[in-house]
Amino acid sequence: MNKLLLAALVSGALSMPAFAADYTILAPAAPGGGWDQTARTMQEAFTAEGISGNVQVTNVPGAGGTIGLAQFANQDAGNPNALIVGGYVMVGAILTNMSPVTLADVTPIARLTGEAVAIVVPAASDIQTLDDLVAKLKENTGAVSWAGGSAGGVDHITAGLIAKTIGVDPTQVNYIAYSGGGEALAAILGGQVTVGISGISEFASQIEAGELRLLAVSSEERVPGVDGPTLKESGIDLAVENWRMVAAAPGITPEQKAAITADVKALATSASWQTALETKGWVDTYLDGEAFDAQLAADIAATETILKDIGLVQ
C-alpha cells in the first residue's frame, strides 16, 4: 500500500519544475473561492503565455481578505515580485473589521473582472417584478427579509443602497447573513426569506431551471445570457459591481509598478486569460492606471457612506 502511495507521490513530485519563482500571488481566501480561483487562473495564464516562468500561489484565508492583506503589506513590502488578489468585498471588510491595514497600504495595479449582483425570489413568490419589491419595501421595510452573504459584504451593501435609493431607511433593511456556499440559496429555495441577493453565478443554474425568478441585476448593462433587466432599467438609479483586482506590494518604485502593470495588461489581453474568463463565466472589466485609482477611491468613499447609513460602521 505504501508503495502505491509513494509511487503516486513521487511521480507527482518529479513532474514539477524546480526553478525559482517569478511572481508569487497571495490569495487572501481559502482554496476554491473566487479570489483563489482568480489567483490560480492568473498563475496558469502567466506561465502559459510565458510572461512569468514559475508562479506560486499561497492562500491566507480569513476575515474578508483582511488577514491576507495585512500579512502581504507587512511581509512583502518592497518586493517587486509579490502580487495579491482582492476585490470589492475587501473594501467593506476593511471598514467593518476596522482593519489596521487598508488598500492604501498596498499598490493597486488593475481591476480584472466584475460580477453583477442578482436579486431573486423563489418561483412561488407573489413578487413578480422589481416594482412589486419596491412597493413592499415602501410599505413595511422590515417585513422584507433578504438572504445573502456575510454582513457588510457586497450583497448587504447593494441591499442597503437599493433601500437608500428608493427612499426608505437603510437601517430598517432586514438582512439575514448566511455563510457563503449553498446556505443562503437553500433558504431562498425553501421560501424561508422574501428575497435573495448574491452574485449572479450563485443563482444562474437555478434561474435557468425556473426555480428562482430574477428581478434585476445590479450592473450597468444587462448580463449576457441572462434574461433580466438592470436596476437602472427598472427605475432605480444604481449600479454596483463585485469586482476583483490585483495589487502589488507597498514601497515599490514607479518603474517597478509600471513593469508589473505591463505584465498584468499582457496577461489580461492574452488568449489564455480570455479563454479562462469564458469557461468560468467571468466578465472582463479590465481597468488600470489613473482610471482604476479614481474608480477605487470612489468605491471606497461610497462604501463607507452606505456602511455608515446601514449602521455597520461608525
Binding site: 484565508p61 480569513g62 476575515a63 483582511t66 488577514i67 495585512a70 467593518t96 473589521n97 476596522m98 482593519s99 456575510s150 454582513a151 457588510g152 439575514i176 447573513a177 448566511y178 455563510s179 455597520l312
Partner: peptide, 20 residues
C-alpha cells in the same frame, strides 16, 4: 470572532487571526 449577522468583532482582543 466576527458576528455573522452584524459584522461586529467579539472577544478578538485586537488579534487579526481571531477574527474568523
Amino acid at each position: 470572532g466576527i458576528d455573522q449577522q452584524t459584522g461586529q468583532t467579539r472577544l478578538a482582543f485586537g488579534i487579526l487571526d481571531l477574527l474568523d
